[in-house]
Nucleic acid binder design. Structure first.
Lengths: 309, 309
DNA sequence: CCTATTTAGTTGACATAATCAACTAAATTT
DNA sequence: AAATTTAGTTGATTATGTCAACTAAATAGG
């Protein structure tokens, strides 16, 4: 634990430097750091009240008040009585206020751009992923990272390098964390993936890969089994559940199933996945076979579902 | 790119809050934030000169000077003329200075501990991994993350849940980034791993897993092939090369090979991996066969090495 | 509806934090 | 040995932040 604390401290020192570098540009502007932060927040959150500003930035209301009067004096800000509450104001940047914001914003963007410039695309995606993960762990009640929306998620069917591995990875992670499946299951998935890839013909097989900000968050595959199709490798990252992604992917599955004129479809799952089973049933699958299995490092009952006609 | 900048900003806001939370404890101490930081650095880096302090913490030298005189007045610090340079001082905390440091350090530790407490072990490891990755990307010339040392790396032979997947993952990552191998290679590794696991008997098979701070950074496996053994799945994370880890793992391989009384050993690699080949040769392997292969998404020549007697 | 209490924002007084420039004395360069 | 650079100190000044008192509006409770 002590090693972790030291590590944490070392990271904080390091990141403080990054933040300091980014704050520096404000020093070359006609604004103090506190003024800059308020200007930013004004732009981002307007229309906003002084009270909200103070809370967002954790600043004393007196201090905020003074900075705001300064802005009004410099004609950067308009204060209008809040119609809901005559004690309070609604704050709105004037055109020259917006311009002032733009100037420091550009400078700040430039600084960030210079910082991120040397990174490749994959590194940037990785970075975002790391940042979200860190914040999720440390700042559990903050507003970052935002809950992802279904429309931000791309689903593609082209198989790229890295995809199979990421699929195996996510499967392993999810089933290990949530159902304590172990090494045998991992080998089983690896085997399945290898097999799927060898018989993979894009005409009658398909894999759907759901991505958010370049990071893979869900998979589903359709494997050609002659006249019928097998649904395989269905998994969704736990942070991306409950937003309709599973339903969306199932729809794509059903659509492709129809296009290829398969006469039916089936899948194997286990008794431990009721949420998934409910989704399968919703799309017309019915339980047709049960058998105990030892392929999961613990006793489970495998369920076969077939599409009812 | 704009989305990435926004994301970066959002993370910075979020992390600023975390840092703010951690700095807060200093407010309940007889030290200001700046004093606290200096006290920390004094402890960490002593003996140190005022100039170095200012540079490390990016503080104005006048400001540093004043804080230091304050410390001397409070008998927390001893200033001794620098024997190398009579303009300068060597700073050293007095016993009560150390004590003061200890007090705020404990408080800070407690704060961090409370922050990390809700996380499980795996989450903590993930966190460290994310932090190191982020810092490596953003702070390329800083001292964090430190270059890992061989003696910090544990090598274990017990196969745990997640290991196989991580192995596949690292293989894919390394060979994709460094040699542009693609999906076929991934399927090939997945297949190999599944096969290895099925025939895996710990008596005459072994896998070595190198870990740093709980994060897996290298693999090597020995597969029983009857009278001889096959060396498989040798890979080391690019951030952990050049510190003797590969040599260390090969030694373990050779040792186990002897223990099990195999009469020989062989391995397959490709012409593109000269560093690995040099290592194999160093341990007595010699090139015995070459053949072109299509299993790597691009034309490569596979090389077979056999242990010479 | 009236009164007591709470709340949003302002202001003054004040303390602390941080910056800048001028300065001293030692080190280094030429 | 003179000129220049460097480490550190100090005074002047500005920025940041806190606290409490205050005004005026909103709200709660009878």
């Amino acid at each position: 634990m002590d090693a972790i604390i030291d590590e944490f401290r070392a990271f904080n020192r390091s990141y403080t430097q990054v933040l300091g570098l980014l704050d520096r540009h404000i020093l070359n502007s006609p604004f103090s750091l506190a003024e800059g932060r308020i200007l930013f927040e004004l732009h981002r959150a307007q229309p906003v009240t002084p009270k909200e500003l103070g809370e967002m930035l954790q600043m004393d209301k007196g201090f905020v008040s003074r900075i705001l009067t300064g802005f009004v004096r410099r004609k950067l800000l308009r204060k209008v009585r809040n119609p809901q509450d005559a004690r309070s104001w609604v704050l709105q940047l004037t055109p020259s206020g917006e311009q002032a914001f733009l100037a420091i914003n550009e400078a700040s963007n430039g600084q960030i751009q210079r910082l991120l410039d040397p990174l490749g695309n994959e590194a940037r995606r990785d970075m975002i992923h790391s940042m979200r993960k860190l914040s999720r762990q440390l700042n559990r009640f903050g507003e970052y990272p935002p809950k992802p929306q279904l429309d931000e998620i791309q689903i593609r069917t082209q198989l790229n390098p890295g995809d199979l591995i990421n699929l195996i990875q996510l499967h392993g992670e999810v089933y290990r964390e949530e159902y304590q499946y172990g090494t045998t299951f991992e080998a089983y998935v690896a085997q399945g993936i290898a097999e799927f890839y060898h018989q993979y013909d894009p005409k009658t097989n398909r894999i759907w890969i759901a991505e958010h900000l370049g990071h893979q968050v869900g998979y589903l595959a359709l494997a050609d089994r002659g006249t019928v199709a097998q649904l395989r490798f269905f998994v969704i990252d736990s942070n991306y559940r409950g937003i309709g992604l599973g339903k969306r992917m199932m729809e794509l599955f059903m659509q492709f199933l129809k296009e290829c004129n398969f006469t039916g479809a089936y899948l194997w799952t286990t008794h431990e996945l009721p949420t998934a089973a409910a989704l399968y049933r919703r799309f017309g699958f019915r339980l047709t076979e049960e058998k105990p299995s030892k392929a999961f490092d613990k006793p489970v009952i495998e369920h076969r579902y077939d599409l009812a006609h």
